[in-house]
């Protein structure tokens, strides 16, 4: 039942975002508000099993979403800009020293690992290749491994993220 309500509410919010500007009640017209309610109930009935697969509802807390937005807007965006300048430099000069290393994350939830893997993919010099599903360690392809560090058995987040501690942020958001 909780799964159904959470999914319906989420679907309704998405519908409201997509139809903003259609009328005079707030930003919406009466027809859209009613139709959205009906459609989101149908969607929730169909997809609640996929949407709330793990039976955990910690992401239903709006505070976590606010944190997620803050995370995406400041540390993530800065790292992403840095990543692009870095890649641009390597595209032009062709200086690369690639390899796949192991990165221990210490995260526990699926959503947390997803967020970290996506963040790693979009930040400087790193690309997630594989996940160890038991320990949640990530295998990361780095485009430029520092001289001598390739003999390390497993990398810590400190070795990869220079400016911000992504795993700390993600632990606050998702766990």
């Amino acid at each position: 039942m909780i799964a159904f309500l959470v999914t319906a509410l989420f679907a309704y919010l998405v519908y409201l975002v997509l139809t903003a500007g259609s009328g005079t009640i707030g930003l919406w017209s009466q027809a859209e508000l009613i139709a959205g309610g009906g459609i989101s109930l149908v969607v929730a009935a169909i997809s609640r099993k996929f949407f709330c697969r793990t039976g955990e509802y910690r992401m239903a807390n709006p505070l976590r979403w606010v944190l997620l937005v803050a995370y995406a807007a400041v540390p993530f965006f800065i790292e992403m800009a840095r990543a692009n300048i870095d890649v641009a430099y390597r595209v032009i000069t062709g200086k690369i020293r690639p390899g796949i290393v192991k990165l221990s994350t210490g995260l526990e939830t699926d959503f947390g690992v997803l967020l970290l893997a996506n963040s790693i993919t979009l930040t400087p010099g790193t690309l997630t290749v594989g996940v160890d599903e038991e320990t949640n360690d990530l295998y990361v392809h780095m485009i430029n491994i520092g001289m001598g560090t390739e003999t390390k058995e497993s990398f810590e987040p400190d070795d990869v993220f220079a400016l911000f501690q992504f795993p700390e942020w993600i632990r606050r958001i998702a766990e």
Partner: peptide
């Protein structure tokens, strides 16, 4: 080219 491949 690659200097290390832990996944392999």
């Amino acid at each position: 080219p690659a200097v290390v491949d832990r996944l392999q």
